[in-house]
């Protein structure tokens, strides 16, 4: 750092001395009538310059060190503190959000499991009810079927009896119509024999 400063200063020194030479030449050429020498070397002006320089420096130093610098330092520190605090708060909120998300997901999974359990239980209940109802219905159907077949048997038996009665009557009527006298017994025997065959 000091190296660069030194190089910089020597470079600018060189530039200054060249420029000074030019200025000096211009001066000697330009106004020989003027009193020789630079105003910078007029020692009569030194006390005035030094006095006012010191006044200015004291004012600047006082104003800066008492008011401006503590204030700017405070502003910068405040800003730094605020930024740090804000970042911390953001960090905290972020972790909170992550935790909330975790809790939410957890709750969601729990709720799903619960729902699945309830669904399974309901299914089982319904299945049981269904089975019971099915069994009940089966039993009823069986009972009804048995009753029906009994009735059918009865009807069939009744029908056979009626058919033989009708056959006997028809046979007696036919025999009578043919002019024969048929006694009931023979006709019945004949019909029975026919119906067997």
């Amino acid at each position: 750092m000091s190296n660069t400063a030194t190089t910089l200063s020597t470079a600018t020194d060189a530039a200054a001395s060249t420029a000074e030479a030019i200025a000096g030449a211009a001066e000697t050429a330009g106004h020989a009538t003027e009193s020789a020498g630079m105003p910078q070397l007029d020692f009569a002006t030194f006390p005035n310059q030094i006095f006012w320089l010191l006044v200015a420096l004291v004012i600047i130093y006082t104003v800066l060190s008492k008011i401006a610098l503590p204030r700017i330092g405070g502003i910068l520190a405040d800003r730094h503190g605020r930024i740090t605090r804000d970042i911390e708060a953001a960090e905290k909120l972020k972790t909170q959000a992550v935790e909330a998300e975790k809790a939410y997901n957890h709750a969601l999974i729990d709720a799903r499991n619960e729902a699945a359990k309830i669904v399974a239980a309901a299914k089982a209940d319904i299945q049981a009810d269904l089975d019971k109802a099915t069994a009940h219905a089966d039993a009823e159907i069986a009972a009804r079927a048995a009753e029906s077949s009994k009735r059918i048997e009865e009807v069939r038996a009744g029908a056979v009896a009626s058919v033989s009665d009708v056959a006997k009557d028809v046979a007696e009527a036919i025999v009578a119509a043919l002019g024969g006298a048929a006694d009931a017994k023979t006709v019945a025997a004949a019909v029975a024999a026919r119906m067997k065959g």
């Binding site: 600018t12 060249t18 211009a26």
Partner: peptide
């Protein structure tokens, strides 16, 4: 002298 010289030279030029 560096400071005064630089300032003076530039203004004079």
């Amino acid at each position: 002298i560096r400071l005064a010289g630089n300032m003076m030279a530039g203004h004079a030029v």
